[in-house]
């Protein structure tokens, strides 16, 4: 029968009602798992790892800085994927998931920026240095702001979904361009600054390996952030679906009045 064949398809979850039901079932698990991972990871990192010989206790900031920075980028990638799915397959849930994810991305970017600045203060001697990586996150932050502002500004939900999706696509290209531009631009200013290696710890392309003592709590925190992201996005997507339905119902009421 066709119904069984359909139920096996992933796109089945694009139906709002099915999505709501599935999310409600999954959410408690995600909330619990993310809280557990984060609490264990952060407590482990904060209380039970030694200070770094060079950076002292500031190394503990890594447990917040790295996962949030990682998820700040992944969140944008998720929004990009969701936007593409909306543009190609016109599944409303996909567009709403992108909308739901954006504020989460903003907060993660903010956490990455704030922890970066606080960490930088004793290392660089100032709260803000125009380090390429930090600057890129600032630009990413601006992209998030523009994306959310566009969603808020447009009355018609489908038009808003279309426009934000195109903005997300174009923005992604320009975000990558900006990343290279910033790298290029800063090279001329801070050539060979050795303190910059602090920032180098924060990326996957670093030459310095984070040593094992820090590795496990860090991994736990990363997993915790990923789960927290999933939980938040699922929950907020459900909220967006309901808000969208309210809007549709009210529009229908007005049309039939």
């Amino acid at each position: 029968m066709t119904i069984t064949a359909k139920a096996n398809s992933l796109w089945e979850y694009a139906n709002p009602r099915k999505f709501l039901a599935t999310s409600e079932r999954l959410l408690p698990f995600f909330w619990l798992a993310s809280t557990t991972c984060l609490v264990v990871g952060l407590v482990w990192g904060f209380f039970f790892t030694p200070d770094d010989y060079k950076q002292g206790s500031t190394v503990k900031i890594i447990y917040l800085h790295v996962p949030s920075a990682l998820m700040a980028i992944n969140c944008w990638l998720m929004m990009l994927a969701a936007s593409l799915i909306w543009l190609v397959r016109r599944h409303h849930v996909s567009a709403l998931a992108a909308r739901a994810a954006a504020p989460v991305g903003i907060v993660f970017t903010l956490v990455a920026l704030v922890t970066g600045a606080i960490w930088g203060q004793p290392m660089w001697g100032s709260w803000w240095a125009w380090d390429p990586r930090l600057t890129s996150f600032l630009i990413l932050f601006l992209f998030y702001l523009g994306y959310v502002a566009l969603w808020e500004a447009i009355e018609d939900p489908d038009t808003a979904a279309d426009l934000t999706s195109v903005l997300c696509l174009v923005g992604s290209v320009f975000a990558i361009l900006s990343r290279y531009a910033v790298n290029f631009w800063n090279q001329g200013l801070h050539q060979g600054a050795s303190v910059m290696r602090v920032a180098a710890v924060t990326g996957s392309d670093t030459e310095e390996k984070v040593s094992n003592i820090y590795f496990f709590p860090l991994m736990l925190c990363i997993v915790g952030f990923v789960l927290l992201f999933i939980a938040l996005v699922l929950y907020r997507t459900c909220t967006e679906i309901r808000a969208r339905r309210i809007k549709a119902l009210l529009a229908r009421e007005r049309a039939n009045a």
Partner: peptide, 14 residues
């Protein structure tokens, strides 16, 4: 150590 405020404020704000 000397970074008490730094670390605590980073954790607090986040």
């Amino acid at each position: 150590g000397k970074y008490t405020e730094t670390v605590l404020s980073a954790y607090g704000i986040s």
